[in-house]
């Protein structure tokens, strides 16, 4: 049996990858995937702690988060499409009509 701390370490690692990806990556879709990775790292943490303590509530929380993440994906991808239509790029760096001048 895999000890619970391994799941927690994996989740922390996934969260770190997602966190770094959001800060470093230029492509909006990749950034968006990194955010999803962070949400799922949180899910995995919830489930690992729930398993450790033998309570079910953490596992139930994961379902709520999955539903919220799906709604977020719908809105997020729609916004990415709207950006692509108005300027033909989804690079985070090139979207800069709004800035201090």
């Amino acid at each position: 049996m895999v000890p619970g701390t391994h799941y927690l370490a994996l989740a922390a690692f996934l969260f770190a990858i997602g966190f770094a990806g959001v800060l470093v990556k230029k492509n909006a879709i990749i950034v968006f995937m990194c955010i999803e990775l962070m949400l799922n790292a949180a899910n995995l943490t919830f489930i690992a702690f729930a398993r450790q303590s033998g309570s079910m509530s953490g596992q139930a929380i994961a379902f709520f988060v999955i539903a919220v993440a799906a709604a977020e994906a719908a809105v997020g991808l729609a916004i990415v499409i709207a950006v692509y239509r108005t300027r033909g790029t989804i690079s985070v760096d090139e979207v800069e009509a709004l800035r201090d001048r």
Binding site: F19, V22, A28, L39, A41, A50, G58, V92, V95
Partner: peptide
Amino acid sequence: PEAAFKYFILGSFASAILLYGSALYY
């Protein structure tokens, strides 16, 4: 769209951080 794009990326980034914090809290 650009405003929404920036708001969405940073807002959901913040939500994900908040959720991971909640998981540790749990």
